[in-house]
Amino acid sequence: MTRPLRLLLAASLAALVAAANPAAAASPAVSPAPKAAAKVGPKASGKAADNRVMIFFDNDFLGPGQSNIQSMIPLLRDPRVNLLGVGVVTGDAWMTEETAHLLRFLEIAGRPDVPVYKGSPMPLLRTQAEMANWEARFGRIPFKGAWNAPRPGRTYHPDEPDLVPPLPEGAPTIKPRHEGAVEALVAAVHAHPGQVTIVAAGPLTNIALALRVAPDIAQLAKEIVIEPGKLDTAFARTTSNTDYSTDFNFLFDPEAAHIVLTAPWKAITLVGNVSSSVRASPEVIAKIAASPSPVARYFKTYARTGQPLWDEITVALAIDRSLVTQDLTVRMDVDTMPGMHYGEPQVWPEETAPRTGVRQVHLVRAIDADRFLSGFVGQARQ
């Protein structure tokens, strides 16, 4: 399939999915939004509330624990945050199961008021069968998220997207909102023009669909902060943990990544390789576990030792940009052509970049890891 045809198909499919709004369809698992939604974010009044960072967070919440769920901790505990809503997208696991894990964590954290919105259950174009065909030609992708084969000790169910296995942490009693994630994101940006930071730490399907429904959100949002985009990781995949060096978020939905990266945002910040710079070491887990709080106990029970704090770092940088100690301005896109580089990010310096819609991206290269870790540990102990 040629690139123009693939992109045309992606755009058409996105418009159809958004028009149908399947996330808002009636379902026993979904309840209508209350007439008066509870205030979200830390309580604040007067000028202090106006200075908080407005965030709409979109992620694939594999659970329990691990980086996806743990990234909610700064959003819930940092008083500088006004969390407008959380969208869920299929990626590391199926969207329905991810939603259940997220809702249960919010109960444990004492924040059932946070609005959760179900998003896209599938990538725009990529399918499980197509990925298998790609692997047969170009080599195995070790981590395939929701499409992982069943394995001992894990709950992967690649052929049952609506299945929610028994949750180790217990089933939630709260429900997601009636509106879908795409609808909620568009509404949030329209309601607060120039103020909303969109943080996307999973596949970019929901964000791409929102751009197809309401292209103006790219100009109306304050910025978008993205956590895929790992570069030059071939050697790391050979010598280190292959799963930790593979850019799953782009690979799972390359067309969505292309749509998002080429939209006319005011600012795009990409947290790529640096998101692997700090890990959930035994020492970090022990420090958090010393607290008796429900969130600390949850972290102790379900954190994956040695896993990079990918999404936690991304959220922290969206809240406090002073944590960035080095960045680089580049032009970036994602390869959507059939072949071995399908789904990989492509970057150029300004002087050699193509003039076909690729945008400037602020690529974070280094952070104040000690200050980030100190802040995160303190928040997780609350």
Results as ranks from 00 to 15, higher is better:
Y342P: 01
E160W: 06
P215T: 09
N51M: 14
A221N: 08
I367V: 11
Y298V: 02
A218W: 01
T301V: 07
D60G: 15
I285A: 07
P115E: 07
G145T: 03
L62A: 12
E312D: 11
W147C: 06
G272F: 01
P349C: 11
R80A: 12
L209H: 05
A33F: 08
Y117F: 05
E283D: 13
P292M: 05
L373Q: 02
E227G: 10
V347T: 15
T305N: 10
M122A: 13
L209E: 08
A200G: 11
V40A: 14
P64F: 05
T325G: 09
A236L: 12
R321E: 11
L270K: 00
Q219I: 12
D58P: 01
A380Q: 06
T352D: 13
N249Y: 03
L124E: 05
P34Q: 14
F235W: 14
F250G: 02
F248W: 03
D216C: 03
A100V: 02
S245K: 04
G46Q: 06
L16F: 14
G180V: 01
G119A: 05
A129G: 06
V225H: 03
G139Q: 03
F143C: 09
A256F: 04
A289C: 10
P142D: 09
W134A: 11
P123L: 08
M340H: 15
A23L: 12
V330N: 03
V334F: 06
Y342M: 13
R279C: 13
D311K: 07
M54G: 01
Q307P: 04
T127V: 08
P123T: 08
L363D: 03
W310R: 05
G46S: 09
A129V: 09
A100Q: 09
R321A: 13
M1I: 12
T325E: 08
G339D: 11
T314W: 02
P158S: 01
D60N: 14
M340V: 15
A14C: 10
E160T: 12
L102C: 03
P172D: 04
L84E: 04
G343W: 02
Y342K: 10
L251F: 10
A316F: 00
T246E: 13
Y298T: 05
S291P: 05
Q128Y: 06
E283F: 08
D58W: 02
L363V: 07
F57S: 00
A36Q: 11
T301Y: 07
T305M: 12
E350Q: 15
K47M: 14
P308W: 06
T99P: 04
A24M: 00
P282R: 02
A26I: 10
K35I: 15
V196F: 03
Q128G: 02
V358M: 11
A33K: 06
A316R: 02
A129P: 03
G153N: 08
A20Q: 09
I108N: 00
R6I: 12
Q66K: 14
G110M: 06
K35Q: 15
G91F: 00
F105I: 00
L167E: 11
P176A: 07
L261D: 05
L62C: 09
S71E: 06
A184L: 01
